[in-house]
């Protein structure tokens, strides 16, 4: 490897990217309510405070329910759209796929507000359910993107062989297609779960003040006394998402290896 300057720049860039995440555990274990240097000594008090926080527990449970529902729904909707767009030609395909992928290029606030205006006008009360409905819109494009590449790497002759051997279209899908795209489905589920768990705008505006983790964190950072326990929570969340992502990346690579393709890079 040559190019020492480029290498140094890249390492410096990584340091910039990681700096907040590296500071998280440092101050989460720091024995001082004020988040500033010099460090005061080691403590696990903030983690204890975090675990004792009843509201936090409710918020975490709500977020978990939302994220699991959103990941499931988005992945299912993603399977329909990705399969249809890879496998079939039909009228209106381009505009329909464009509409499905639209939230990727639309500021999230606009999606949230448009939905909110309609819900308020129809008199539908805001709840965890409306948050799920909104977040599915945001997550489905990601699911479609991941699943499209999974369906594309599928060898069509395998399906044709199964059909020729007398399987019905549905049993072919279940026995041949589904197992082969399973890694893509897992990756899509994990990515959608992560996005939903992290999502703030829809959780805040379509949740009408329900305790949801991202909204709760946002609120707590305004009280300096609460910041250390939020840093402890952040440390836990970062570890959690690195584990999830490592798993998603593993599934993705296994999927590519299974389909006999070549690894071309990371997510998206």
């Amino acid at each position: 490897m040559k190019a020492p300057y480029l290498r140094a720049f890249t390492l410096f860039y990584l340091l910039f990217l990681y700096s907040p995440i590296l500071l998280l555990p440092i101050f989460a274990f720091n024995d001082g309510r004020v988040v500033a240097f010099p460090l005061q000594g080691f403590t696990t008090a903030w983690f204890a405070e975090m675990f004792a926080d009843q509201n936090l527990r409710i918020a975490a449970k709500n977020s978990l329910v939302i994220a699991l529902s959103v990941a499931t729904l988005s992945t299912v909707l993603g399977i329909f759209a990705a399969r249809a767009s890879v496998r079939y030609r039909f009228p209106g395909k381009a505009p329909l796929m464009g509409l499905i992928m639209l939230p990727l290029v639309l500021p999230e606030m606009i999606v949230a507000m448009a939905l909110l205006v309609v819900l308020l006008s129809m008199g539908i009360p805001l709840s965890l359910f409306t948050v799920i409905v909104g977040q599915v819109l945001i997550c489905t494009p990601f699911a479609v993107a991941i699943l499209t590449s999974a369906f594309q790497s599928l060898d069509r002759s395998l399906e044709e062989a199964a059909l020729d051997l007398g399987e019905t279209p549905w049993s072919t899908f279940r026995l041949i297609v589904l197992p082969l795209v399973m890694p893509g489905i897992m990756a899509s589920f994990l990515i959608c779960f992560t996005i939903s768990f992290d999502e703030f705008i829809i959780a805040n505006f379509l949740g009408s003040g329900q305790p949801i983790l991202s909204v709760y964190i946002f609120g707590q950072f305004r009280f300096p006394a609460k910041v250390p326990s939020m840093l402890a929570l952040g440390t836990v969340l970062v570890c959690f998402s690195i584990i999830l992502l490592g798993f998603a990346e593993y599934m993705r690579r296994r999927g590519i290896a299974k389909a006999g393709g070549k690894d071309s890079g990371g997510f998206l």
Partner: peptide
């Protein structure tokens, strides 16, 4: 194709 994409399509048409 249309039948397959319809659940997703209906969802985004109604809610987006």
């Amino acid at each position: 194709g249309l039948k397959l994409i319809s659940p997703t399509a209906i969802y985004v048409i109604l809610l987006l």
